[in-house]
Design a protein around this nucleic acid. Structure first.
Lengths: 134, 134
DNA sequence: CGAGATACCGATACTCAGTATCAATGAACC
DNA sequence: GGTTCATTGATACTGAGTATCGGTATCTCG
């Protein structure tokens, strides 16, 4: 909640509103969605705040398989995302094995490895159910 | 070369020009870059052709860490990308270990795994050199 | 080869995510 | 309470990609 103050930013009404809105969010969200939910907050401010939260590590950005941008709360520090190729819902997962493996691969590749990003494309349970019942 | 004809598309001058241009490309490229190189080809046609080549599997789309879109030739069927966080150049790699691991993780996660995408963020050798010499 | 159907073209106008600008406001700190 | 300066919203812009549409070129078939 005091993520921004901790980083030397001011606590303003729009910022509080955005953070409060995101607090409940289980699924990923788009910037446009925030705007729809908080019509009193200017568009620019939404993007500015999203950027701050990104830098603070509170949320993270990912792309759906078609490239559409989406954000999600970072519940755990280092993690990766599952994204449903049907409905676009995103989830998180961690796997220590991956981290070890990526470090090993980083050593085999020219240049210095500084990080990675992994997206697991799935069809989520709900979409599977809907497909069945059709 | 006859990728498009093989899929029932027509062989037209703009398409041939784009494919010929991409043939040489080692690094990743953007749509805008194609347009700069082939000013006689309309913008819409570039995006249309890029989309066809994507569907045909000839090229693939990826995002730089900041979300900027980029394309790269698919030299091998299933592969992943390294992207330099300094200069944005992209490379390819494969690692059978990853594929096995991702399949295992897919089994542990609710829903049906259908694919994945992995980006390894690096600082490429050239950027390392430049950083040293400064 | 000639002709017709239609896939494809370029120009243009649009959408969508995100950024730049700028005058007005309101946190923070004294 | 007053001052400073980060922040705001409005607005205009950029960059990637899509929709539309009248005109053109490719493919196919006779």
């Amino acid at each position: 909640m005091a993520v921004l103050e901790d980083r030397g930013h001011r606590s303003t009404a729009p910022r509080r509103a955005i953070i409060r809105f995101l607090q409940g969010k289980q699924e990923g969200f788009t910037a446009e969605e925030i705007g729809r939910e908080l019509p009193d907050v200017g568009r620019a401010t939404i993007f500015r705040t999203v950027k701050l939260l990104l830098k603070a590590g509170v949320i993270c950005r990912l792309n759906l398989p078609d490239g559409a941008p989406k954000y999600s709360l970072s519940r755990v520090e280092h993690h990766h995302h599952t994204v449903c190729v049907r409905c676009g819902n995103v989830g998180e997962f961690r796997a220590a094995t991956i981290e070890r493996l990526m470090r090993a691969i980083g050593g085999d590749i020219p240049g210095e490895a500084v990080g990675h990003r992994i997206e697991l494309h799935i069809i989520c349970n709900q979409c599977l159910l809907e497909a069945d019942s059709r």
